[in-house]
Design a protein around this nucleic acid. Structure first.
Lengths: 112, 112
DNA sequence: TTTATTTTTGACAAAATTAGTCCAAAATAA
DNA sequence: TTATTTTGGACTAATTTTGTCAAAAATAAA
């Protein structure tokens, strides 16, 4: 399955579910949540945790990382969508991440 | 004052305060919070709201946007610092923001 | 049509997170 | 020393987030 870049996490898992012709009921059972919760997740009204993402990835044959990418990028995008300075925020954030990581590396060993 | 890119929001406002030789007490009064709250803000243990940012910008003669940039980029950076895929997250988020904005523009009018 | 099944929605309580204060201790300056 | 500033922990209140339930709405099957 080819992931569309601007597809939200919710849209993505809904499309996967529809592709497999599964009712919410079935997928919700795998995640161990109510159908209502999953319905909201597909509408981005509830957010997945790591466990949800792992189970969904397994179920739909996706890479865990790409599902996590979809979720994390959604979160950042919605946090910044109304900010006129979003572009700069992303660039500065990228630099800060590099800086944080460089600080946490002591003689090649990661420390957190 | 020249803003250092990898300086956190907390570090930034502390440096500004020290430059003006103001005790926490004075700045906290402007923000209408306890010195303890401001101390934590300078250590990034509490976060500023829009009002705090505006008052701090005015007090230190900074642009509101650059202060907000410092705060928002911190938030994104700390959310993604432990994610191996942070770079991709930033790129996809950028695309999603463009997409969200394009959806919200109807005949040149912003709709939210 | 009916009937069964799936999906959506709002209301709600529980859980989790965040914010701000108080106060005492620690650090610093006078 | 003494005064002032800064810090940190404990705590409560406020806010946000989560998941469920139950009923309504939508869709599919008989």
């Amino acid at each position: 399955m080819q992931i569309i870049q601007h597809e939200t996490f919710g849209e993505l898992i809904r499309h996967c579910r529809e592709e497999k012709n599964l009712p919410l009921r079935k997928v919700a059972a795998v995640l161990d949540v109510d159908t209502s919760t999953l319905s909201k997740m597909e509408k981005n009204l509830r957010h997945p945790n790591r466990e949800h993402i792992e189970k969904l990835a397994e179920l739909f044959g996706l890479n865990t990382e790409e599902l996590r990418l979809a979720f994390l990028s959604d979160r950042v995008a919605y946090q910044l969508a109304q900010e006129p300075i979003s572009e700069q925020v992303l660039r500065v954030a990228e630099e800060k991440i590099k800086y944080i990581r460089s600080k946490n590396i002591v003689q090649g060993v990661l420390e957190f």
